[in-house]
């Protein structure tokens, strides 16, 4: 043989799209940036510290776990795929700005180690780590978390009275400024949940980059709004306040759309997001508290069930059935 060089031998296809898991996750981080910036603008240095510590806690937990598991630091750094950054960011954005600084670290560590790594790492978790981490924080530090809200302008922590709890408690919805709700001005709430504009910008970015199907969060949000309206005697003035308050936007755009914990088929996703909307609106009405993360956690557990029963039919499937029946 004139040419003795050996070439790479592998299965087809020999060309692949440039998309990587890392690329997807970096794009999600970029999509969360507007919300991070809005949070820091509205809530100040404390918000920045909380977000920083939750991301740091998440990334550090992943590294520590893998080091204990016996991997080399160099390999871990090489294989680092930014999923823990996304988890950390989401946790930081979904807690209040007056929360003590150790809470985000605990929440992130729980999310990464218990919810993600123990189940096998990226792609193997049963429930969304960020949602579980947030709930872990709320459950473990109940009093502290409830006192963590802050209305940006007054600068005073207030107890439990976000706009949402006000609405659910029967406050006059017509007195609310929809624009304030949308922009997050003068609003108490979690760092990343108040400015809906920033979240929507992030959602549009993800949709444009082909990372999420924007239809799914829209289904979730619209179903929640409509069902809230229906539960309140078809009073449509509840529609906008209900979809613009609480953690719905953040949950719908960034948490419920998580690949690993959402169904794998179009029909499955439609079922999943409609169910999310219905349960969210129903539970909000029944309990009077914000439930989005609990509902996402709950519905995550139904995803394997949906995926078991909703599967795609192969091209040409229907006719084959007919032939069999003959």
């Amino acid at each position: 043989m004139a040419n003795e060089k050996l070439y790479t031998f592998s299965s087809s296809p020999h060309i692949k799209a440039p998309t990587t898991t890392k690329g997807v996750m970096i794009n999600v981080c970029i999509a969360l940036l507007p919300a991070v910036i809005a949070g820091i603008v509205f809530f100040g240095l404390n918000a920045f510290l909380i977000i920083f510590l939750s991301v740091f806690g998440a990334v550090a937990s992943e590294f520590i776990y893998l080091l204990i598991a016996g991997k080399k630091f160099k390999d871990i750094a090489k294989q680092f795929d930014f999923t823990s950054c996304v988890t950390g960011l989401l946790i930081g954005l979904s807690i209040g700005s007056q929360t003590p600084l150790y809470v985000p670290i605990f929440a992130s560590a729980f999310a990464i180690i218990v919810v993600k790594m123990i189940f096998g790492g990226t792609g193997k978790n049963l429930v969304n780590p960020a949602v579980a981490g947030r709930i872990f924080a709320f459950m473990s530090f109940t009093t502290i978390m409830a006192n963590g809200w802050l209305t940006p302008t007054s600068g005073e922590p207030i107890t439990g009275a976000t706009v949402l709890t006000g609405i659910l408690g029967g406050a006059d919805v017509s007195s609310l400024s929809i624009l304030d709700l949308f922009l997050g001005v003068n609003l108490a709430g979690c760092i990343g949940e108040t400015c809906k504009l920033a979240l929507i910008l992030g959602g549009i970015y993800l949709a444009v980059r082909g990372i999420i199907n924007i239809g799914y969060p829209i289904i979730y949000i619209v179903v929640t709004g409509l069902f809230t309206v229906a539960l309140n005697g078809f009073n449509f003035s509840y529609f906008l306040p209900s979809i613009l308050s609480g953690g719905l936007m953040l949950g719908a755009i960034f948490m419920a759309t998580d690949y690993t914990t959402s169904p794998n088929t179009t029909l499955g996703n439609v079922i999943y997001f409609i169910a999310l909307g219905l349960v969210t609106a129903g539970l909000r009405q029944a309990t009077g508290i914000e439930v989005v993360s609990f509902v996402i956690l709950l519905m995550n557990l139904f995803v394997p069930l949906i995926d078991k029963f909703v599967i795609n039919r192969p091209f040409g499937f229907v006719k084959q059935k007919k032939v069999k029946g003959e």
């Binding site: 087809s12 296809p13 020999h14």
Partner: peptide
């Protein structure tokens, strides 16, 4: 490139 077979030499 999508369905072809890779060759070692």
């Amino acid at each position: 490139p999508m369905m072809g077979k890779a060759m070692i030499g």
